[in-house]
Nucleic acid binder design. Structure first.
Lengths: 341, 341
DNA sequence: TTGTACGCGTTATCAA
DNA sequence: TTGATAACGCGTACAA
């Protein structure tokens, strides 16, 4: 691989001039600039990004650490982030924490070591530690889930979405809805359970907590929780499910038992997965604006990065306080939640 | 951020000793090593990955460039790759080319600049240019799709899978199957069409090509192609669809027209998407071993990397010739392809 | 076994 | 406007 030195030799100028010409510094003699570009092209020169980063103490990449690549909700976020990033000249490094706090921590460390210029994170647990990153001045924005410590974040209004979904089930005449939600430490899992419980309380249904199951945010968890609920002494007649992966698991179990949605059991799930409209009884869902979440988060990050550049380590003003963008959800009623007899 | 120098000062040794101690060089006095580790921990030292990479001329990250993050087939591959990578101490940088050759080229360039130690790629088109990477000695393995130039690759046997799927439709009594496949330059799109055409030929069905539609590998493409086929003079009575995204689009169009799978029209699609079993008429599919593809590809890459390390730029032997791993597919028959009357 | 000193490829500073 | 040169932080010959 040719280096800047090779280009300099071939163009008959110093490395400094090459660097300036290639980086578009205006004060370079156009004639020399032309020679430099020609030489670079002839040699197939490509700047060594690593050396550049070392010197600039910053890279043009962001890390996007999501909790589960297999979940279409998160990949939609990724697209939103990516579109904004590309536009602004950044590349995004997508990391899959796989709902595993240890994996997440590893990626957080990689991000730190690699001098990424920003991190977008959907924290596996509310206690995820971004302290080191923050300390080294790397802007962090959380998506989908927030942390216990305050930090820029873009969230959907889970609690309200869950409340409305549950209320909708109740209004349809289902008497005993249960809730299958994610791990206790996941912010969204708590919020959605909260919305569910509030709706039950509002309708004077007692002992709501006994109708809640916490599990991992994956299909297998959804299946197990469904089985457990149905095998209980007083089984539910409807399900509020906290994401589309869990819904897939619930569907499996219901199908295995020959239970038909909308007749034998009602269901609403979070996330409008691409398949939701096509299953036997099309699935009613709480749709989150996933792509927009990605876009907004990327904008927040961009803001922080440019703000940091303006205030380079000395401090003519404290950094802006953390901002939270809360986006609304939309209840899409299809067949699974309607009561047929 | 503390540097190696800070650690050295605090431990009362030279930077060389710190480097050696932290990298586990055995010749370091255990006492000093202990002091070094203590100092590092106390300062919260973390090696600057960029500086390290510059010096070592290599990083411990791989780039995995996939054609579409929203497609569960590719995310399953990603998991396979990741599991092997983690095990071997590598991080994987997931890049989403989004079926866009230009985006893919950008990521290829990022990979080159960032000195990743290996690249896994599902090429958007057979003509994707990996020449520069290869020239700089970065091992490349393609997954799912191959390139026109020979290179390590892990593929599923698309043609055979397509052949069997089509034959299955014919055996079920569907008379006029059509094929919706991906872009002309995508390797899998061609292979699957080939398998389809071979099956038609075998059953003496003429003018097979008029029953093929090329489109992008996304839901919107699937929908359009379906509409076009159904509106044609002599519409098909069954569909062979080349991936699960296209299938989603086809499903949309069929639903909109009130056509029921298995009664009005037959269908088999590539890829056993998580939802395939749950739609109204459960979808018959050609399942590809996606996770295994990822695992095998990662192993191939690992092989190349270690081989390259043993033969560091001098050449006591030519590099091993490109290897191709071809994995089998499995036809899963559900309801959508069975002929009901 | 330890420390000194150099080089990795860039960018940024400074003097000319 | 240009060029020489000093960093950036780390790993490693080489000498001690």
């Amino acid at each position: 691989m040719p280096t800047i030195k090779d280009v300099a030799e071939r163009a008959g100028v110093s490395v400094a001039t090459v660097s300036r010409a290639l980086n578009g510094v205006p004060s370079v003699d156009p004639v020399l600039a032309k020679r430099v570009h020609a030489a670079a092209r002839a040699l197939g020169y490509r700047a060594n990004g690593v050396a550049r980063s070392l010197r600039r103490r910053q890279t043009d990449v962001w890390a996007l650490i999501i909790s589960d690549v297999a979940n279409p909700f998160f990949t939609a976020i990724a697209r939103g982030v990516e579109d904004v990033a590309q536009q602004a000249g950044y590349s995004v490094l997508l990391c899959n924490a796989d709902e595993d706090a240890a994996k997440e921590a590893r990626y957080l460390e990689v991000a730190e070591r690699s001098l990424v210029s920003g991190v977008l994170l959907s924290p596996t647990i509310t206690g995820s530690d971004i302290g080191r990153l923050q300390a080294s001045g790397v802007p962090v924005v959380t998506v989908d889930r927030n942390l216990s410590e305050p930090v820029d974040s873009v969230l959907a209004d889970s609690a309200t979405g869950a409340f409305r979904a549950t209320e909708h089930l109740l209004e349809q005449g289902w008497r005993r809805p249960a809730c299958i939600t994610g791990p206790r430490q996941a912010a969204t899992a708590e919020d959605r359970m909260r919305g569910f419980l509030d709706a039950l309380a509002r309708h004077r249904i007692r002992r709501g907590r006994s109708l809640v199951r916490h599990t991992n945010y994956r299909a297998d968890g959804g299946r197990e929780a469904t089985a457990e609920l149905l095998d209980a002494a007083d089984p539910p007649d409807a399900l509020f499910v906290a994401n589309s992966e869990l819904a897939l698991g619930a569907l499996e179990e219901l199908t295995a038992r020959g239970l038909r949605l909308g007749r034998d059991i009602g269901m609403v799930a979070f996330d409008d997965a691409p398949w939701a409209a096509f299953i036997e009884a099309p699935l009613s869902v709480v749709a989150q604006p996933a792509y927009e979440i990605g876009v907004e988060a990327a904008r927040l990050l961009l803001d922080r990065i440019t703000a940091a550049r303006k205030r380079p380590s000395d401090h003519p003003g404290a950094p802006a306080p953390p901002r939270t963008v809360l986006l609304g959800t939309r209840l899409i009623v299809r067949e699974s939640s309607r009561r047929h007899r």
